[in-house]
Design a protein around this nucleic acid. Structure first.
Lengths: 160, 160
DNA sequence: TTGCGTGCAAACGGTTTGCAGGAAC
DNA sequence: GTTCCTGCAAACCGTTTGCACGCAA
């Protein structure tokens, strides 16, 4: 069944066109790379994908297109603490990540879990949280089991 | 009363020394800059402070020292989404930030508010969250009042 | 035909590295 | 006297920019 290629490509494309932006092959391919990607994708990865079928694209076009798509609300950014930002189609909905600091695994986190937090931020601080992509760092289930005795990784008590 | 300079300087310094690291003037001054800073401080800011009294320091020394201090658990990092990391003495305790995307203001957030989240991550995902510094983006009370009609800033439904 | 979007190359800002000389122990 | 730490300079990496050409509309 794969991805409904035409749908995912046509809607954002149409959206851009209606706004007066030109539909160039580069933009369409960049859009496709993002919407077809299962996970969050970085600018470099988009560039790699696109240039595989269209070698003359330039990385700066990728960045300019990403800026446009973000501006138009078609993609959102996530900072997973890697020193680089990742992108993701806005229509795929928001979700959050648990990033394991031991093994690097990334787990998706149900949005609902953050609702209580959002509510109390609103109630107690009158702060309207925009939690579209949140990365929470820590240690995953598997790594916890493997290293059961330890409780934290940079704890200051170490007496070797 | 100010900061108890000797205490804050001596403890981490002593700690480093006991671990076999040398106590150089550069390290002491960098340590002092961090512990004396009220708010989170960036590498560049540390460099500026230190080089004010010791012009020959190099920014690379700041980075190397920060890496050491982080490794030894004496400072922790926060990523406030500025494209640069900020540092903060570990013994000042953990706290979190509400970052207003409209006006840039940064508010401190009580650690207790995150406990329910941490607990449910542990319960439901067996994930041991290491939430030492979290930045939550959104819109602060004042900016919400000022722009009451809007509900989100990049919402996709816009029909101008 | 018009002007937006692109490729190119160079610059950016924050951070990291190799090296040789100098200081802490 | 060793060895670790530093300053220097250059490289790094992801990202941004100025410019002239070319293509979508």
């Amino acid at each position: 069944m794969a991805v409904k290629k035409h749908d995912v490509e046509r809607n954002p494309a149409q959206f851009l066109q209606e706004r007066g932006f030109r539909l160039t092959p580069q933009r369409l391919m960049i859009l496709a790379a993002i919407t077809e990607s299962q996970k969050h994708i970085s600018a470099e990865e988009i560039y790699a994908r696109v240039s595989a079928q269209y070698p003359q694209v330039n990385i700066s076009t990728v960045y300019r297109t990403l800026a446009l798509l973000k501006e138009q609300g078609l993609v959102t950014e996530t900072d997973l603490g890697e020193g680089r930002v990742r992108y993701h189609a806005a229509d795929k909905g928001h979700h959050h990540h648990l990033v394991c600091q031991s093994c690097g695994a990334i787990f998706d986190l149900d949005e609902a879990l953050l609702e209580p937090l959002e509510r109390s931020l609103l109630d107690e601080y009158n702060f309207e949280a925009d939690i579209r992509h949140l990365a929470i760092f820590g240690r995953c289930s598997r790594c916890r089991q493997r290293a059961a005795p330890a409780k934290g990784q940079e704890v200051i008590d170490a007496h070797p």
